[in-house]
Write a protein that binds this DNA or RNA. Structure first.
Length: 291
DNA sequence: CCACAGGTGTGTC
DNA sequence: GACACACCTGTG
């Protein structure tokens, strides 16, 4: 991997395992827009940036040397050797196909509170609608970050700010449905310090899972997503309907309860379970496996 | 009008 | 613990 800077641009080259489309559309993140030129504009850490794949290079606009070092290097998980992850996972034909299909995926290291609320919204919901709800919540309660010819940008609100939101406003304007109260109650529990994110970060995987599930709207699947996408627990294995279908069809060969699949996923893929999960989810959903 | 998509909370055994 | 069933909204 080579990194070059040109003012407000960062150019990454000699890195095969980085495709903005795979990274943003694989289901892990919601604060992004696909532009007409095929690039992806995204918001994180109070910043707006744009990622575009041009030939073998990745162009990051809105990323200078300082913000790259402080934010984006970690956000894009650039310290990790995904070639090696893929090698370690490619022990069978299923994973060979899945990693080949999603070879540009990287698991982002996202902001914790935003990820918690985002995945509470994701429950029994679909990506376009989740994106819209989060966008509206940011517009209503976040900070204005700037605008371009396409749209205005807002940061995701703090727990303090969101704890003061009214459930009926979230329902009426952000279209979150029955998740309205869960969102405000969770923001309150975190804002009050009743649930301490820094404490959860220090726990082992099982304790962290249980601690997160104290939050209303956080069950086993959402807890695993939060751990995988914001707490750097790359060994966690969220089981949604797609993972259930793919695992049943390709690995287990029989109908299996979600709770058992979560355990089996971690047994089969070990420390790489989270990566396997993302490759399988993306591969399975895009190809409608098991449907 | 209806069917379908998708995790959690609640209640029952 | 394992299982029903309700819960919102958008799309086709």
């Amino acid at each position: 991997m080579k990194i070059n800077f040109d003012g407000n641009f960062c150019i990454i080259s000699e890195l095969e395992e980085f495709d903005p489309r795979d990274i943003f559309t694989c289901g892990q993140a919601f604060r992004w827009y696909e532009e007409d030129d095929g690039s992806f504009t995204f918001i994180t850490h109070g910043r707006v940036a744009n990622a575009k794949k041009v030939g073998d290079e990745i162009l990051l606009r809105g990323v200078d040397r300082t913000s790259f070092d402080e934010i984006f290097y970690d956000y894009f998980d650039l310290d990790r050797d995904y070639k090696r992850v893929i090698e370690e996972l490619s022990k069978d034909d299923v994973m060979k196909s899945a990693t080949e299909y999603g070879k540009g995926i990287r698991i982002l290291n996202q902001e914790k509170f935003e990820t918690i609320i985002s995945f509470i919204i994701s429950a029994n919901n679909q990506i376009p609608r989740i994106k819209k709800s989060i966008e509206k919540i940011s517009e209503m309660y976040g900070e204005f970050l700037g605008e371009d010819e396409n749209r205005k940008y807002f940061s995701f609100p703090s727990a303090e700010k969101l704890s003061k939101a009214k459930p009926e406003d979230l329902r009426e304007f952000a279209r979150v449905g029955f998740r309205d109260k869960r969102i405000v109650d969770t923001a309150n529990l975190i804002n009050n310090g009743i649930i301490n994110i820094d404490e959860i970060e220090k726990m082992n995987l099982e304790d962290a899972r249980s601690a997160l599930q104290v939050l209303p709207g956080v069950g086993p699947k959402v807890a695993d997503c939060i751990l995988l996408f914001a707490f750097d627990r790359k060994e966690s294995f969220p089981v949604d309907v797609w993972i259930k279908r793919v695992m049943e069809e390709l690995y287990l060969k029989e109908v299996t309860p979600k709770s058992k699949i979560a355990v089996r996923g971690r047994e089969v893929f070990g420390k790489n379970a989270g990566f396997a999960n993302q490759y399988l989810f993306y591969y399975g959903r895009e190809n409608k496996l098991g449907r």
